[in-house]
């Protein structure tokens, strides 16, 4: 019988469906009888989903500089002379 601590320790494997068939059944069984772990798993799922919402791009200044540099690089690459990086 799995303990709450096992649920805590293996939650990511459960959420990512990495558990064996047998382990998954045991996991489910524990969730069925334990409201705290059901709560915990729901919260972990919410946490992981929320993280995807944090994706952000670099600021436009960084992008502008980098793009300018790359364009210059690719032009020299196209013309056959590849300069060492500018620094």
């Amino acid at each position: 019988m799995l303990k709450c601590r096992d649920i805590h320790d293996r939650a990511s494997d459960y959420l990512e469906k990495r558990l064996s068939w047998r382990a998954r059944i045991q996991f489910r069984l524990h969730l069925f009888i334990c409201v705290h772990c059901r709560n915990f798993i729901r919260q972990m799922r919410t946490t992981v989903t929320a993280l995807a919402g944090l994706k952000k791009s670099p600021d436009s200044g960084t992008i502008d500089n980098q793009v300018t540099l790359l364009l210059r690089q690719s032009q020299s690459a196209a013309s056959g002379s590849i300069p060492k990086k500018d620094r």
Binding site: K56, S57, P58, T62, I63, Q66, V67, L70, L71, S74, Q75, A78
Partner: peptide, 16 residues
């Protein structure tokens, strides 16, 4: 092809 929009896209997506 050295297209600026393409560079802008990859830098935005990959740089971080």
């Amino acid at each position: 092809a050295g297209d600026e929009a393409a560079f802008r896209h990859v830098v935005g997506e990959y740089h971080g």
